Simulated assay, not measured.
Amino acid sequence: MMTKFLTEVTTKFNPFSPNARSARLFLSLLPPDARNTIAVKTTLLPQRSTEPSSLSVKFKDGMEMKLDCEKLPIKSLAEEVDRHSRKLQKAADLSDG
């Protein structure tokens, strides 16, 4: 997953819920040094919470993506984030050369 253009990742999930799997796996895909360049905010909900899991990603161009962790599998979440990151990479490559 391309994390070069991410500025902030905000997640909220119940760690005991099977529906939170995508949010947990998304956090595990971030590189170990991600907290140096990306603001990672995680909110753990109580075990009995019925609030849905959520994932919000902000990019360097100001775009914010709010993704539904309960309906999208991890592969789809990563593809959505990579899709916008590739657009930003292409724009950066065109402006450099």
Results as ranks from 00 to 15, higher is better:
Arg48Thr: 15
Ser49Trp: 11
Phe16Ser: 08
Leu25Gln: 14
Pro46Glu: 10
Arg24Met: 15
Ala39Trp: 00
Leu44Lys: 08
Ala23Val: 13
Lys12Asn: 05
Ala39Ile: 03
Pro31Arg: 09
Asn14Gly: 03
Ala39Tyr: 02
Pro18His: 04
Ala34Lys: 00
Pro15Trp: 12
Pro18Arg: 04
Leu25Pro: 00
Pro15Cys: 09
Arg21Val: 08
Thr11Tyr: 01
Lys12Glu: 14
Lys12Phe: 01
Lys12Gln: 14
Arg48Val: 12
Ile38Trp: 02
Ser22Leu: 01
Ser28Ala: 15
Thr42Asn: 11
Leu25Asn: 06
Ser22Arg: 02
Ser17Ala: 15
Arg24Tyr: 01
Leu30Ala: 04
Val40Tyr: 03
Leu27Val: 02
Pro32Tyr: 12
Phe26Glu: 03
Gln47Asp: 13
Ser49Asp: 13
Asn14Ile: 03
Lys12Arg: 11
Val40Cys: 07
Leu44Cys: 01
Val40Gly: 04
Arg21Pro: 01
Ala20Asn: 07
Pro46Thr: 09
Phe16Asp: 06
Phe13Asn: 04
Arg35His: 14
Ser22Ala: 15
Thr11Met: 03
Ala23Asn: 05
Ala39Arg: 06
Thr42Trp: 03
Lys41Glu: 13
Leu44Pro: 05
Gln47Val: 08
Ser17Lys: 01
Leu44Val: 00
Thr50Leu: 12
Lys41Thr: 14
Ser22Val: 06
Arg21Cys: 04
Asn36Asp: 15
Leu30Pro: 08
Gln47Pro: 09
Ser17Gln: 07
Ser17Cys: 12
Arg48His: 15
Pro31Met: 09
Ser22Lys: 01
Leu27Glu: 09
Pro15Val: 09
Pro46Lys: 09
Thr43Phe: 05
Thr42His: 03
Phe26His: 02
Ser17Phe: 03
